[in-house]
Amino acid sequence: MYYIVETQKSFDQASTDLELAVKRLGFGVLHIHDLGATLRSKGLAFEEQCRVFEVCNPGQAAKVMLIDMRLNMALPCRISVFTEKGQTKMGLIKPVHMLSALSDDLALVQIAKDVEEKTMQMVDEAR
């Protein structure tokens, strides 16, 4: 269900490298949520770092929504860079698993496989 890798890179370097890999592989970064900073800004003692990258390939997103518009709620894809006990990690929830739980449409499964391969490749390249 999850694809998570560890990296020896710093949190900031892994974040930069992920953003470059996303663009190199034909996706765009729609937004980056800095959840760690947000929690700290609310006065919470949150030690870890966490950035969630919303990434999208417009062609693939359009295909998904043409098949089942309700699946817009599962878009865009999210890839996280985070720390856990001092270790930098990157990961995602695999699109095939997620979309398979939401629909039985075989065309969606194929789209999800294509997107899953690309998003995992992004993580691997940024690692």
Rank of each mutant, 00 (worst) to 15 (best):
M73G: 10
L20M: 10
P95R: 11
S80H: 13
N72E: 13
R127T: 10
S100Y: 00
P58Q: 15
Q121S: 12
K113A: 02
P58A: 15
Q60M: 09
T88Y: 05
L102I: 11
N57F: 07
K113H: 13
A45K: 14
E116W: 08
V22Q: 06
N72F: 15
N57S: 10
G43V: 12
R24E: 15
A107F: 12
D105T: 03
G26D: 07
V81P: 00
V109A: 14
K118F: 05
R78N: 14
D114A: 15
L106T: 13
D12C: 05
L108A: 08
A74P: 00
A126G: 02
M90D: 01
L71I: 08
L39V: 09
A74I: 09
K85F: 07
V64A: 06
G26C: 09
M122W: 02
T16F: 01
L75H: 01
L35R: 08
G91V: 08
Q60G: 12
F53L: 04
L102G: 12
L35K: 07
M90Q: 03
M65K: 04
Q60V: 04
A14Q: 05
V123L: 11
M122P: 15
F82L: 13
V55C: 08
C77H: 09
K94F: 11
R24N: 15
M90L: 12
S100W: 00
A37M: 02
V96L: 06
F11A: 12
F46T: 05
D104C: 05
D105S: 09
L20P: 00
V96H: 08
R40C: 10
S41M: 04
R127P: 00
L99R: 00
L106Y: 01
E117A: 14
L18V: 06
V22H: 08
I32R: 03
P95V: 13
A14E: 04
H97K: 10
A14M: 06
K9W: 08
C77D: 13
Q87D: 01
A74N: 08
L108K: 05
F46S: 00
Y3P: 15
N57L: 02
I79F: 01
V64R: 06
D114Q: 12
G59M: 07
T88L: 05
R127N: 09
E19Q: 14
T16D: 12
A74M: 14
R78M: 12
K23A: 06
I67Q: 09
M90K: 01
L25Y: 08
D124P: 15
Y3T: 08
G36M: 12
A62R: 11
V5A: 02
V115C: 05
L102N: 10
T119D: 07
V96C: 11
A45E: 14
S41E: 11
V96Y: 07
K89T: 09
T83I: 03
R127M: 11
T119F: 03
E54T: 04
S10D: 08
H31E: 06
A101L: 15
V22C: 04
H97C: 05
A126E: 02
D34R: 10
